[in-house]
Amino acid sequence: MNSHLLEWLIMSLFIFCVGIYGLLTRKSGVGLLISLELMINAGALNFISIHRFLYPAQVDAQVFVLFVIAIAAAEVLLALALFMLLIKKQQPVDITQLNHLKH
């Protein structure tokens, strides 16, 4: 019983599409972030599975995924800081209503 590459790629594609669904349906910013994390995670899983199946001796994919995780962390940090600012200004974190620049 050996697992083959196609299953893994379809799996990460599935998570990615679930992320797209979330991105299209969520209204609040935090919900968008959660869907975005899922999509990033799917990309990373794709990277690692191709690395393990096709080029198991090379480090590059793992280095890349570490970079991806670092950038995902940075992105969440900035987005949450923005949301905190909105909350402090008594505005809802609702992306359908966030259509003004600084007044």
Partner: peptide, 19 residues
């Protein structure tokens, strides 16, 4: 998007690559 991806992947003949 999922269907498109599966269609593209299935055209790549990836069944032979095992863990």
């Amino acid at each position: 998007v999922f269907a498109l991806g599966v269609w593209l992947l299935s055209s790549l003949h990836l069944h032979s690559i095992i863990l």
